[in-house]
Design a protein around this nucleic acid. Structure first.
Length: 197
DNA sequence: CAATAGATCATCT
DNA sequence: GATGATCTATTGC
């Protein structure tokens, strides 16, 4: 969809229905694939999830949970439907959603969203960005644009302040699969899901 | 355009 | 003390 034909969307995001916790109580791969197309909401700011990656548990060397429970990774071992936010490269923060039942590690990295509402707020947090689609088209960019920080680590995404909701209308999308980005281990595992443009 | 370096710090060894 | 699920500016064709 190019152009911005529905620029009045801001009014109704609070009526979107949160995805139920049972949605997350499944293998991380399924959750990752089906999160594509859902809507990420934080206050008045929202965006459609267009790219995700699955990180498995103890069998996935690329996953933070690979080495077991530590103060940082304990959220991943907790109940599904919660946010895992961590600092990367000393500068940026990345948002994950915990999948699989409590005790079973597995999570989904949200890599990109397409801005839907709250565009002015996003621009304020990301000065210098030219195109709307560049505001949140990366893991570090989307947390910046949407004001998500480590304060939200452990937050329940079925309750807020960060929410994952069903989109207002079902859209026809084609989901593509590829290897994950920027990792060293298991670099050929097809665990990245994204919307075909 | 494509390739590369630098920023910067919590976490784990 | 090394590392990393990134981004941006800059350099070089």
């Amino acid at each position: 969809m190019r152009g911005s034909s529905h620029s009045r969307a801001g009014a109704k995001i609070d009526r979107l229905k949160p995805v139920p916790r049972s949605f997350y109580d499944r293998p991380a791969i399924e959750v990752a694939r089906e999160l594509v197309g859902k809507v990420l909401v934080h206050g008045a700011v929202s965006g459609r999830i267009i790219e995700t990656e699955a990180y498995l548990g103890l069998e996935d060397r690329a996953a933070h949970a690979y080495r077991g429970i530590t103060p940082r990774t304990k959220v991943i071992f907790g109940p599904p439907g919660h946010a895992y936010v961590y600092l990367i490269y000393g500068i940026y923060e990345c948002l994950n959603i915990v999948a699989e039942k409590e005790g079973s590690p597995g999570c989904v990295l949200i890599r990109a969203v397409e801005p839907l509402t709250g565009l002015p707020a996003m621009r304020k947090r990301r000065p210098g960005v030219r195109k709307d689609q560049d505001l949140a088209n990366g893991p570090g960019k989307l947390t910046l644009a949407m004001g998500i920080t480590r304060r939200h680590n452990g937050a329940d995404v079925t309750k807020g302040p960060i929410l994952v909701c069903e989109p207002a209308q079902r859209e026809e999308i084609v989901i593509e699969v590829s290897p994950r980005i920027g990792i060293k281990h298991n670099a050929d595992w097809p665990l990245r899901f994204f919307v075909r443009k």
